[in-house]
Design a binder for these strands. Sequence first.
DNA 1: TATGAATGAGCTTTCATTCAT
DNA 2: CATGAATGAAAGCTCATTCAT
Lengths: 242, 242, 242, 242
Amino acid sequence: MAKTATKATAKTTVRKTKKRSRSAPATAAKEDNASRRTLIEAAKKEFARNGLFGSRVDEIAKAAKINKQLIYYYFGEKDNLYLAVLEDVYTDIRAHENALDLGSLDPVAAMEKLVGFTFDYVMDNRAFVQLLTNENMMEAKHVKRSKVIKSTHTPIVDLVSQTLSRGEASGVFRPGIAPVQLYISIAALCFFYSANIHTLGILFDRDFRSKSEMAERRAHVIDFVMGSLIGGKMLGKIHSRS
Amino acid sequence: MAKTATKATAKTTVRKTKKRSRSAPATAAKEDNASRRTLIEAAKKEFARNGLFGSRVDEIAKAAKINKQLIYYYFGEKDNLYLAVLEDVYTDIRAHENALDLGSLDPVAAMEKLVGFTFDYVMDNRAFVQLLTNENMMEAKHVKRSKVIKSTHTPIVDLVSQTLSRGEASGVFRPGIAPVQLYISIAALCFFYSANIHTLGILFDRDFRSKSEMAERRAHVIDFVMGSLIGGKMLGKIHSRS
Amino acid sequence: MAKTATKATAKTTVRKTKKRSRSAPATAAKEDNASRRTLIEAAKKEFARNGLFGSRVDEIAKAAKINKQLIYYYFGEKDNLYLAVLEDVYTDIRAHENALDLGSLDPVAAMEKLVGFTFDYVMDNRAFVQLLTNENMMEAKHVKRSKVIKSTHTPIVDLVSQTLSRGEASGVFRPGIAPVQLYISIAALCFFYSANIHTLGILFDRDFRSKSEMAERRAHVIDFVMGSLIGGKMLGKIHSRS
Amino acid sequence: MAKTATKATAKTTVRKTKKRSRSAPATAAKEDNASRRTLIEAAKKEFARNGLFGSRVDEIAKAAKINKQLIYYYFGEKDNLYLAVLEDVYTDIRAHENALDLGSLDPVAAMEKLVGFTFDYVMDNRAFVQLLTNENMMEAKHVKRSKVIKSTHTPIVDLVSQTLSRGEASGVFRPGIAPVQLYISIAALCFFYSANIHTLGILFDRDFRSKSEMAERRAHVIDFVMGSLIGGKMLGKIHSRS
DNA sequence: TATGAATGAGCTTTCATTCAT
DNA sequence: CATGAATGAAAGCTCATTCAT
């Protein structure tokens, strides 16, 4: 246990060069720019696929068809580009979450929609999943220093909390479930499948990326969550499968 | 046995300038060796922490207090060492799974034990979690080429399947749950927490690595799974919390 | 043009952990460049002296007073630099051969000039000789994959052929000599002396690199070749082929 | 020209390790030994193919199926093994040369036999050719320090000399040909073809290793030499030296 | 903004050689 | 004689970063 906390700093043996200027010349003009966006998109793919360490600045520049030096002009260093990508994906999911309008639905429908959305999002945005995963391996050191990410609270926790309360109040959900734990569980059920789809495929000798497998998983996750909330035995009667 | 995996073929008389043979001269004697084991243990930590790309052969050697070149003597190349580590952790978890004796327990107790074991294992073996996670980022290419890993089926799937059947038969578990999906869900609920503990901590501003948080999560996971299997409303009456 | 030789194909999105792309990013601009040329010249000396395997990239860079990594920037890998050197020397000798104007001389003078030129060239360009020699030890694998070298036919073969025909027609040369064999023989008489000058020196305890020895050899070679071409008229009658 | 003499010492950048004990424990028993012979044969192939620098001690040991350490036991270091190989091939060719009985043949037949033998030997013993070639690239530094090689004079020079004299005396050979030059020329005509067979093949797009090509070359060489020796009577009148 | 050229520092891997038994 | 294990010293190559224009 102590272990996990120790090496964060010590272990960074990474290639260290001179590092003279560090911060990118943050002119306002630079903030929104086609090249910048292209770079972030290219970097997102690279970083998702290979992680921070496995990605090459050259490859990103080449993929973006943009001169490598521009990366340094815009981001100062590789790590900053990585962080920019992280902030980008975080911003994106927040936007989608905010678009969710669960308040107008009854608790059961709302919860089903929420779980379905989470599943769909992680499957459609594998990059997001891989980036988060990779960032966790590095003990979230980039996310930790990002004001953008830390300040933007996810609305989902509140959504879960409220929906759960409404369901409990109306008697359709059993009481005693901690909203935070529920949120983590929902995320886990979706996220894990997306993140570990390759080893799972080998383990079961199935192609979990196929449409039918994905559909089966999606249904199971919703069923599993609702089952736990409602009480499995009466599941069929209360809610309709999506 | 070891022989079969080696460069038997590479013995062509033609010079292979680039990349001659790569695999280590795996004589049987070499299979079990103190240095080899020490290296694997050191590498496990490195790779878990930094991934394949982020890890440095030098660091591994230094950590193992073993001459760096021995790594090449035993494993031929970094990738092979990485695979050896993967096979090692896979072997370990399989051993633990096999030690699980669920058949003698009633379905509810058996399922609780199973979930609890999974949770404990992933929390006690963060390296395993991180290695798997990292391997998935690389699309499981190492695992794919490992006979050791592919041939050793996990017994857990069968355990889940049988326990589920027993529970269904006795009427304590609701029917209609696919064993494979259930297994994935159990793994997900445990694994995700372990793998993403840092970003979760930031999101909720809590230290999920603390004992109390871990205990809370553990209880929730068991409760959540059992709730879904049994039917939440009567949960309290049937099983006792661990 | 340069583009065609590059990694256009290597741009696959899949990560090539081992050996990504190898060839240099051969933009047209790079084709003629002072650094590039300097490197080739330095490499020529190294490779001629030590062969491909015996040469050290570090030494080449040092000799060229150019940052070692530029070698990789321009040539991608040691082998490519080696090939570039080979192409360079081939190009050079071709240029000299093309400058030979044998058509305006009578057959005897033309042939003498040709042999003399060959002798002088291999003595003045020991590097060429040693590079060829070394390349042959490697079964000409680099030359084989060089379009530049394979496409540039040596004009000497035609020169030999034409001169031979003219001499035969005018009755000054005996008939029945195959041009290709004659060409090889001329080359052999010159080349061998240059390539094996050291062991020859030991064998005869003479310094074959001295001016007088070289002059003697030069005269002998011309005499020997002309003797065979001119004096052969009665050959058939006197000796029987084995 | 000065160039060729300079770098002999300076350029030896080769991997230099500690070098403690140097000479092999030259017990008499060691001199002739099956393992020793096997090693020399294996090394001969390796060195012929890859040169001193391109050859790997490991490969030689593996090819000989003899433990690597034995190489050090017998030869002390790689260079000594290389020299042993050189001495071996030199000894072999000397033995064959000594078996030649030219004195009993008439000059023409003797000379033809000599040329034919030389051609056959270099074609049958490509290793010899390549080793010599490689040794010359290193400025014959090993041969220079070998007493065995330096002391064993080749009988061929005398054979050439005597045969030439006999032919001159009997009027069948033209006078004025220096025996040493003739010897070198004969060697050149044969040796060059063997040593440069690959690049020649590319140049002319022919497979000079085929039986028919070899036969053609063999006939040409004999014809070419005899032509020069016999037909020279009118040489002086017809062409002028350059 | 954009781009080709250049570079320092380090990384993986190689290889001759030696040790210990 | 034989053999597996070990090691020092490079060698080839990579990569983030910077320069010059």
